[in-house]
Each structure stands twice: as structure tokens, then as C-alpha cells.
Amino acid sequence: MGSVDAFKALVRRDLLLAMRRRADVLTTLIFFVIVVSLFPLGVGPELETLREIAPGVVWVAALLASMLALGRLFSSDYADGTLEQMVLAPQPLGLLVGAKIVAHWLVSGLPLVLIAPVLGIQYDMSWEALGILMLSLAIGTPVLGLIGAVGAALTLGLRGGGVLVSLLVLPLYIPVLIFGAGAVDAAATGTGAGAHLSLLGAFLAVSLFFAPWAAALGLRISLE
């Protein structure tokens, strides 16, 4: 089986598995919606304030949701031994990990991007800002998945893995948060989101290059 075929097959398999257990996918999405909806209850319903904090709130909620979803990335494959087979497979492990991350993003990242405008409307964001919010999430959430995969691989099978992964991964998420929320902010204030989006794109390019390799290394360390 060629590398490209293996990549496609693995993406299809992971998507199929996710579709068989839809509740898992929905949990992340519902968590995202709930967190974003909690803020007006805590901060107060004034639209002026809400409009101001909207980019940050949506982005932080997206960060937390992607972090919580990381537990599903490798754990079931680890439990039933599939992961060991992937490590032993003739195809490069980095590529297979990349396929898993792609499938993971389609299942847990893309829904966040699609639901975000609805939440933005609750915060009275302008149409332009909503567009930039979707765009920034579309570029930023894959970065979160890629960086998170490294943390998920390193903490595989450890006690207290869930809390530990947040400790490892959240600090590394901060640049994405800054530029993601910054892009929306810049769009809302009319200074132009181009620079922020370019930097997000740069993060995506760099993490696309390094993260699957680092995650593969982490998996080898965890499985040996």
C-alpha cells in the first residue's frame, strides 16, 4: 500500500469510526457552545461589553474545546493495540499521525468553525468580524490540533493524562490565541486582519511541517 493510499485509508477509517459514535463528536461542540454562552451570564448582558470581549471569549472556548478533544486522538487506538500496528507499519509514522490529525480536525475542529458565527451573532458581532472569526478559526484550529497531538502523544497512558496534557499544551496554544483573537479584533476596529491572519498561516505551515514528526516521536517514546 502506497503512502498516499494509507493516508486516505486512515482518514476514511477515523471518520467512519467517529460517525459510528456521533455523541463523542457532539460533546466537544456542545462544550464549546456552553462555555461561550456562560460568559454573558457572568459578565452581564450589555451588548457593548459583549461585542468587545467576543473574539477572546470565542477563541478561548475554542482552545479549551480542542484541548478536551485531544483525549480521543490516540487513546482508543492505544487501548486496542492499533497504534502499535501503525508504528510497525511500513509507511512513515509521521504521515499516519498526520492522517489521524486531519481526521481529528474534520471531526472536532471544523464543527467549531461552522458554529462560531452563530455564537458571534449572540455577541452582536458585525458581519465582517464574523467572517474573519470563521477564517481565523479555520486557520487556527488545525494548528491547535497539530500542537495538541504532540502533547497527546507524550502523555499517552500516563496517570492524570487529561490534566497533564492541558498543562503541556495550553502554554503552546497562546500565540495562536493572541493572533486568532487579534485578527477578529483588528477586523472589528477596522485596522485590517491581514497581518494577524498571515502570522496564523505561518504557524500553520510550521506546525504542519514539524508537529506530525514530533508527535510520531512522542508515540514511539510512549509505546516502547
Binding site: L158, R159, I221
Partner: peptide, 21 residues
């Protein structure tokens, strides 16, 4: 991360990946 891994060899290597990242 190092404290939560009992095997020192694995702790070293996992910590190394994290430090490099």
C-alpha cells in the same frame, strides 16, 4: 511531565520532545 512518568528513560525522552517544542 517528567514527574508523572516513572520510567526515567521514558521521562527523559518525553521531556526532551517537549523542551524542543
Amino acid at each position: 511531565l517528567q514527574a508523572s512518568i516513572d520510567d526515567p528513560r521514558r521521562a527523559d525522552r518525553a521531556g526532551a520532545v517537549l523542551a524542543i517544542v
